[in-house]
Amino acid sequence: MIPAQFDYVAPASVEDALAALAEHGDDAKIIAGGQSLLPVLRMRLNAPEWIIDLGRIESLRGVRDDGDSIVIGAMTPHSVVGSDPLVAEHATLITRAVEHLADAQVRHRGTFGGALAHADPAGDLGAPVRALGASFVIQGPGGTRTVSADDFFVDLFETAIGDDEILTEVRVPKHTGWGAHYEKFVRVAHQWPIVAVAATVRVEGGTIAEARIGLTNMGSTPLRAAAVEAALAGQPATEAAVRAAAAHAAEGTHPPSDLNGDADYRRHLATVITRRAVLAAAGA
C-alpha cells in the first residue's frame, strides 16, 4: 500500500520535464494521472528513484481543432475528453470508448496520453485510436517526431516512446459524420474489457462505404480487424452482411488465456461483438 521512497519533481514545461528525464534516465518514471502507475508503485512492482509529474504542464492539456485533425493533449483527463464537443463531433468513437473506461473517479484523474503510453492491451483507448488512424506526437531531446498508430504499439506495455521522450499529443484525423460504437465485454462493470471492439463506419444510402475496426485485448497490442474492414466495404448495412464480415474478426489475432476466458472463447467473442459493434455504429 505504501510505495518505496522516491524523489519528486513537477516541471512547468515539457522542456524542463525532458531535462529531468535526461538527468535521471533509467531511474525516473513519468507520472501523468497516476491511475496505472500508482497501483504499480503501491504494490512495489516497480520502484523508480525519481517521479516526474507532468501535471503542472498546462500546454499538454486540452483538445483543439487543427484542420483535418483534432489534437488531444496527452494530459487531458478522460472525463474532459469524454465530454469534449470536438471529440464528440469528429471522433465519436473515442467519446463512446471513454464513456465506459474505468469509473468516474479514475476518469477524473487518468489521462488520454497516460492510458496510451501505458499500453495495457486491455486498455480501452488503443483500439479506437488505431481504428481512427491517429498519430502520436513524441518529443525528446532531439526534437519532435510523429509516429503512426500502427507503429506506436510495440508490445504488451511497450510503445514507440523512448526512455528519454514524452508523448505530448495525439492527432486524430476527423471522421465527421461517421457512425461509431464501442462494445465492451466484461463480467463486472469495474473490470477492464475481456474483449472489446471499436467500430466506426461511414454509411452512404444504406451501404457501408468504409469501416474502421479496432480490437481490444485480442493480442499483445490493440489490433485492426483488417479482414472485417475489407469484407464490409461496399456491403449493405444489414444483419446478414455484417454477420458474414464479422466472422473474420479473429483472423490474425493472438488473444490471451486467463481467469476471464480462454483464447478460443475470446476469438469467438470477437466475432459476435464485432457484429454488434458494427451494426450499432451503422445505426442498423
Binding site: V40, L45, A122, P256, S257
Partner: peptide, 14 residues
C-alpha cells in the same frame, strides 16, 4: 484458468 490480467504488472504478462 490460473492466470490474471496483468494491468498493473508489466513484469508478469498473462
Amino acid at each position: 484458468e490460473g492466470a490474471a490480467m496483468p494491468h498493473f504488472d508489466p513484469s508478469e504478462p498473462g
